[in-house]
Design a protein around this nucleic acid. Structure first.
Lengths: 165, 165
DNA sequence: TAGATTTCCATGATATCCCATAAGATAGCA
DNA sequence: TGCTATCTTATGGGATATCATGGAAATCTA
């Protein structure tokens, strides 16, 4: 089984910016880091730019490579490619879990998404997100209400079955 | 034969949140976990968000993977994909049966659907549901009365055979 | 050398593992 | 057909490991 990021949880951010990454996510990060071996600590990537400017997004090494590969397919020097490279390569950073399964969020990163002394981790399959709790709640509410407004044939759950190959 | 989740049963939830999963369901979970082998204990997924917010829904690994695969076909960063990931990945969690065929429902999960010291398991074919007993009874009653109100050509039993492909 | 960052240790809470038992269910057999 | 032995289930309790988190010491770095 290929493990995916699943679930959501709330964690304290201490004065130094340290946060525990949910234990379940660590397993996914380990599996997703080709250089990981027992006894070491997995590397991964946090993207803070681009589409989602209200949260941070964490990718395993192997899932960010997939994205990188897609970007490489765009014509060199194209506007699109430039933009994606800016958002996904420039505005991102490598991270490493420490011995106790924590990472440290720099002042800059916390500020970027409004994180204070708490953060919510949300699994999103191939990636996960880190949110300031209030913003996260707003996101959920917004999603909920926009879901309720959808007509039957816009419902993504129902569209799923039509994709069936 | 492909086993499906069938039947309903009531189980105690102890102080630690432990509940026995009905023995019949365990067989289905085992068959539905590609990594399962005799001597190990099957993994599966519980979804608590989205459409059904009044009960928990259990999926085998292989049936949730089907869903995951469909979601992965949607464009990364699209609104639809975001919504589905939020409801199906974020608001879900991996589970593993223990040696005695139990799982533990965290405080958060129990609270989400109002479960106290008893829970009802209900088979639903490809998935099963976990309910607080009173809520379950209400659900049954509501279903019953809305069924009675249907006209002949709305009756799903009669529509069934028309779908035949 | 002051402030920031990283490493190392400490602790309470939670989750997991291991063992135990009683009630059913099933099988075997006379 | 009735009786006993065996297995499976549902459930409980205690021991142990893991997790989330905080603080102190060591190391950078500007």
């Amino acid at each position: 089984m290929i493990r995916r990021f699943r679930g959501e949880s709330l964690h304290k951010v201490d004065a130094k910016g340290r946060v525990s990454v949910p234990a379940a996510f660590r397993r996914v990060l380990e599996e997703g880091d080709p250089d990981f071996s027992r006894g070491s600590y997995p590397n991964f990537v946090i993207v803070y730019g681009g589409v989602r400017s209200d949260c941070l997004e964490g990718y395993t090494i192997s899932s960010i490579s997939k994205v990188d590969k897609l970007i490489s397919k765009l014509p060199r020097f194209s506007k699109d490619r430039e933009m994606l490279e800016r958002f996904i390569n420039t505005q991102s950073t490598y991270m490493q879990l420490d011995e106790t399964g924590r990472i440290v969020l720099s002042h800059r990163l916390k500020e970027k998404v409004g994180i204070g002394d708490e953060a919510i981790f949300a699994g999103m399959g191939e990636k996960f997100q880190i949110w300031e709790p209030k913003n996260y709640q707003n996101e959920l509410n917004a999603l909920d209400s926009s879901f309720k407004k959808l007509s039957e044939d816009e419902n993504p759950f129902l569209k799923l079955d039509q994709l069936q190959d």
